[in-house]
Design a protein around this nucleic acid. Structure first.
Length: 800
DNA sequence: AACTCTACGGTTTTT
DNA sequence: CCGTAGAGTT
């Protein structure tokens, strides 16, 4: 048994797996087998006879938790310990213990949008100017307070703004309370408070969890930190794993000091460093190490590898973001031709907005892809509408959900009626929801037609409530029927919405199948706490697109990181009023860590890209190379400049296969509005003459000379590659115009007549394909369920 | 109450 | 550029 548990581990890993008692900190560089250590350690605990119910493992995503669970099960079998995210742990804890603090077991979890809406309503009721106090800013300010464990009473009240925020905060809390709802921050905050204040509950849980593991400890915030501190206090068998160099959530309250101070919190802690990397090539690792070395506040750690050096990373320089996107497609195609599967390839970017042109290029090139995260399925309007009905059924106090659906689809209960009901509720001192579901409380002024409409609505909800105990799928279908929601959508204009709703029915059915005794509340909780990666199916053979943040914890054989431009990566922050130099440096260092995370996802191939101009809000802005590129050793980079026109092209009046309407692009960044504070700006902003002269010295292949100096600006030599080299390569940057050009009509090669299979509907035949790109839809006649319209980018159709 | 039009503003990153 | 929210119109 012990053999299997320790098999194939190095000394440090073994040490970590075998150190079962007492506080333990595992500092694990990227690719050093951290997940392996955690799962083996859990298995080892169980092999030593520890009851799995006494083990708690907290991870960053549900997917990570699920993977660990199955790996542990493969090693030791039997019951699984509780493996979940911080948020889902707290959600479950509060389902059970909530009644201690007056919280219904059926409480609703408000997501970011719900919270912002609630805050908007609060601000409106207070008569605040929306421009001066935008709901999202309010939400952010209050979230910051909550993350630091500060209630409305403890909030600062020095300035006028402070006092407004304080009041909004207090009103918002009232709204949540009467709605029996918690936002994301509350889940953590309320759980911690309950544990702090209720000795009996605290001791029960402290006693239960004899062994606690926390993954990604570098990204815990104050609440999460306290939670762990409290829960681990009884047995002090707390194992934290993480990597300070991969701390990327400072902006949402994560405090890197939690991991840096672990040894202070637990003076008897054992600290183990995992430094041998098994994931990446030597060159990729060297890029990452050189980069991260530029962070000043850092715990020194040297990750090394026995892996071969591998190929250089390529830096592709493109004229604009659309050409960058085509280069992404061309690069992926090249990899696929040389034996990589689409599923081996990942494309990372800093902001979600960057995915659009890339998507378009991939569609055009008929390369299968999937975006992870972005506008997530469960954030779509139509989905949230249906979910709001479900929530209202589960929790009749939920005011936000009530407001959302009371007139959807239109049933004559518009703004005026809601206003009237609101006033009446205030007069009676009850919540809006309480009023709506209590006929005797309705105002006399509610006239015949409106009264009928409201009766219809209240009946609808209470009828649905009778079905709440059964399968979620049944309830969803009932609600669709009873509301006429699908009929209210325009078959032609909103076909993708209809398809999405169909998908939701499938998802609900899937949940019912996976959780035979699940129940509506569990379903809503699961949906609310799904992370972006949780809905990602890595077994699908598609190129994966995601933000750098979501890439954390994953690995891919071949990786493209786009948008290596100053202002984008590192991203330019909006100047805050309390902007001191330290904060600025901390922010820059976090951006550097983000890039570090991206690079270290790559196993074999790494391509970086930057565009000299980028479309933003409709017009083009020129952009400078990312300062981070200068921090990667020249010897590790092969620069592939497809944007600088060659001598021949300049003199023939043509440029890089580009249409000629792009004049003005070469004004390199003189007009760059974004970055004018850096003193190096002058040097970059010029047309490169100075750079050219300087870099002549090191020219061409500087590997031997420069290997010791990792700080030599990498890209400078690039601009000076002999022009003659350029034209031949440029073709790859152009749109792919092959295959008769019809590929847009059927992005994933699905055509009328094809036999396809769907995970829910089974086998069917494609009747027609309409639309193009992202909104491409197929009408499929399924043997079992008849004709369905499916959105190709949503439905996971497999060709038979 | 519901529809149409216009103006504005949004891009960090996510549970 | 795009979608949404608010105002204005019927």
């Amino acid at each position: 048994m012990t053999d299997a548990i320790l098999e194939g581990l190095n000394e440090q890993q073994k040490e970590a797996v075998c150190c079962l008692e007492g506080p333990l900190l595992v500092l694990a560089g990227p690719g050093t087998g951290k997940t392996r250590v955690i799962t083996r350690r859990i298995a080892n605990l169980m092999a030593h006879g520890v009851d799995p119910r006494r083990i708690l493992g907290v991870t960053f995503t549900n997917k990570a938790a699920g993977e660990m669970r199955s790996r542990v099960q493969a090693l030791v079998g039997g019951a699984s310990p509780l493996l979940c995210t911080f948020h889902s742990f707290c959600a479950r804890f509060l389902r059970i213990e909530g009644p201690n603090i007056g919280l219904s077991p059926d409480y609703t979890i408000y997501d970011e949008e719900d919270s912002a809406n609630a805050m908007k309503n609060v601000a409106k009721a207070m008569g605040l100017d929306e421009k001066q106090f935008p709901a999202r800013s309010l939400r952010r300010w209050i979230s910051n307070l909550k993350n630091r464990g500060i209630g409305p009473d403890g909030a600062p009240s020095h300035t006028f703004r402070d006092r407004i925020i304080q009041e909004v905060y207090a009103e918002y809390e009232k709204l949540l309370r009467r709605s029996q709802a918690l936002d994301f921050d509350d889940l953590l905050l309320r759980a911690v408070r309950l544990l702090e204040e209720n000795t009996a509950v605290r001791e029960r849980y402290q006693d239960r969890y004899r062994y606690i593991l926390v993954d990604e400890y570098q990204d815990t915030n104050a609440c999460q930190y306290h939670l762990m501190k409290i829960l681990g206090d009884r047995w002090r068998n707390v194992c934290a794993t993480g990597d300070p160099d991969q701390s990327i959530y400072g902006w949402r309250g994560a405090d890197i000091r939690n991991i840096l101070n672990f040894e202070k919190d637990y003076p008897d802690a054992k600290v183990i460093r995992l430094e041998e990397n098994y994931r990446s090539t030597g060159t990729i690792l060297r890029c990452a190490s050189s980069l991260i070395r530029h962070n000043r506040s850092r715990k020194e750690k040297d990750v090394w590898t026995r892996n071969p050096a591998g190929r250089k990373a390529r830096l592709a320089v493109l004229a604009d973001d659309s050409l960058e996107a085509y280069e992404v497609a061309a690069t992926a195609e090249g990899w696929m031709r040389s034996g990589f599967r689409a599923g081996d390839i990942a494309v990372f970017y800093r902001t979600n907005a960057q995915s659009r042109p890339i998507e378009a290029a991939l569609v055009e090139s008929a390369i299968p892809y999937r975006i992870v995260g972005a506008t997530m399925f469960y954030e779509r309007k139509e989905i949230k509408d249906i979910l709001a009905y479900l929530r209202l059924v589960a929790n009749p106090s939920d005011e936000e959900s009530l407001r959302r659906v009371i007139n959807v689809p239109r049933r004559g209960l518009g703004e005026a009626v809601v206003k009237m009901l609101e006033d009446e509720a205030r007069r009676k001192g009850i919540g809006l929801a309480a009023l709506v579901f209590d006929r005797s409380a309705w105002p006399a002024s509610l006239g015949g037609r409106r009264r009928e409409a409201l009766e219809g609505f209240a009946d609808l909800i209470s009828k649905a409530r009778e079905k709440a105990g059964g399968k979620v799928e049944t309830l969803v279908r009932h609600i669709l029927d009873a509301t006429g929601y699908l009929e209210s959508l325009d078959e032609r204009e909103e076909a993708d919405r209809i398809a999405n709703v169909e998908e939701l029915v499938n998802a609900a059915a899937q949940f019912d199948a996976d959780n035979p005794d699940g129940g509506l509340t569990r379903y809503l909780e699961e949906v609310a706490l799904l992370t972006g990666v949780d809905r990602w199916d890595p077994s699908e053979d598609r190129v994966t697109l995601m933000t750098l943040h979501m890439a954390k914890g994953l690995e891919f054989p071949a990786v493209i990181i786009t948008g290596l431009e100053d202002g984008l990566l590192p991203l330019q922050r909006i100047p805050d009023d309390r902007d001191d130099e330290d904060a600025e440096r901390a922010a820059l260092e976090e951006e550097r860590r983000l890039f570090f995370v991206g690079i270290t996802r790559a196993k074999r191939e790494l391509v970086l890209m930057r565009a000299k101009a980028r479309r933003r809000y409709g017009d083009y802005r020129t952009s400078m190379p990312s300062r981070f590129l200068d921090e990667i050793p020249r010897a590790c980079l092969q620069i592939d400049d497809k944007a600088t026109p060659s001598w021949a092209e300049l003199h023939s009046g043509r440029r890089g296969g580009e249409p000629d309407d792009r004049d003005g692009f070469e004004t390199y960044g003189r007009g760059c509005a974004r970055r004018c504070r850096s003193d190096t700006d002058g040097e970059f902003a010029g047309d490169g003459a100075a750079r050219r002269r300087r870099s002549q010295e090191g020219s061409e292949d500087g590997e031997g000379d420069h290997s010791a100096d990792d700080r030599e600006p990498a890209e400078q030599a690039a601009a000076d590659d002999p022009p003659a080299k350029q034209p031949a390569r440029r073709a790859a940057g152009r749109p792919v115009e092959t295959d008769g050009g019809e590929s847009q009509e059927s992005p994933f090669d699905i055509e009328p007549g094809d036999r396809v299979s769907h995970h829910k509907f089974g086998v069917g035949v494609v009747e027609s394909v309409t639309g193009s790109g992202l909104s491409a839809k197929a009408t499929v006649r399924f043997r079992a369920v008849g004709r369905k319209i499916l959105l190709l980018s949503m439905a996971r159709l497999k060709k038979e």
